[in-house]
Nucleic acid binder design. Structure first.
Lengths: 151, 151
DNA sequence: TTTATATAAATGTATATACACGTATTTATT
DNA sequence: AATAAATACGTGTATATACATTTATATAAA
């Protein structure tokens, strides 16, 4: 569906203005499509993101601040997301021995298994479905980088 | 800041995969930059969006469903956003005479004034600051359209 | 006309976002 | 060593997201 139909709007102040709305809409669309797949695994987008971050360092532990710095949405409340993952026994929390202020998190075997299963589905049902070519994706990445270059 | 620094990640499965994360990150970044400006007016991004939608039809009224269909994030809970706008007397709610199930919303003079002031700031401090050219924005819009073309 | 179905909006609930603040602990300064 | 400043995390609050349910009203079908 074209952006114009999606938000029932045809007049934009400029192509740049349209692009801003387009990025916001596409992000929402991507999240929605992904969330639908993740729901079968009882995961939210953010919980999935935290699990992926932890898996990337496994078997090393990570502290909360470290996880937060890798989140896509920087204002995510990581302690609370970990609360939910801990309840489901997908991660384990421990106080750091070196610095008692730090809480170190480890992904459990259950977490690894659920992440593997959900990633498989996400890759098959989402990532592999995109029509966009690798070359087009490179261009897209360059342009997205550029929109954050503020004068 | 490059995406790699922003989310402290260097290895992506593909450029397409990177682009997906990039869109999500850029959307968050755009919302954050915009929200900072809107905060001075006591508005959230979503409240601003609803006011803009209402202004587009003014002096016509709009029902809740009509507003919802124009929202960027389709799962927005419009009645609740309107609750907040109504409390601040930026919009007015009335039951439709034709169909008593419908609630019709009108933007007030105060709403129009606040929207005008905040749009001025948003345009000056945000929209006009982008380095992206109109031609680049066209390409960006084409590619964003394409990423939603799922096989 | 009565009943069933559909529709519009509001409401409830769990989670997340955005941000301020509190508490414990560590590091730096005097 | 005592105090101050910084840091890490957790918690509180308002708003939003995502989605299910409820209530009122309108429309369709029996």
């Amino acid at each position: 569906m074209k952006l114009e139909e999606a938000i029932k709007s045809t007049k934009f102040k400029s192509e740049v203005h349209k692009a801003v709305l387009h990025i916001l809409y596409t992000a929402w669309w991507l999240k929605t499509v992904g969330a639908k797949e993740l729901k079968e695994f009882g995961l939210t987008h953010e919980q999935y993101n935290v699990l992926r971050i932890l898996k990337g360092k496994h078997p090393e532990q990570m502290c909360v601040r470290d996880i937060a710095s890798r989140m896509i949405e920087k204002s995510s409340n990581v302690p609370r997301i970990i609360d939910r993952l801990e309840l489901k026994k997908l991660v384990k929390r421990n106080t750091s021995a070196l610095d008692k202020r730090e809480t170190v998190i480890t992904i459990t075997q259950g977490g690894i298994a659920l992440l593997a299963a959900s990633t498989l589905v996400m890759d098959e049902k989402m990532m592999k479905q995109f029509v966009l070519s690798e070359e087009e994706a490179v261009t897209l990445n360059v342009l997205l980088e550029k929109i954050r270059e503020i004068a």
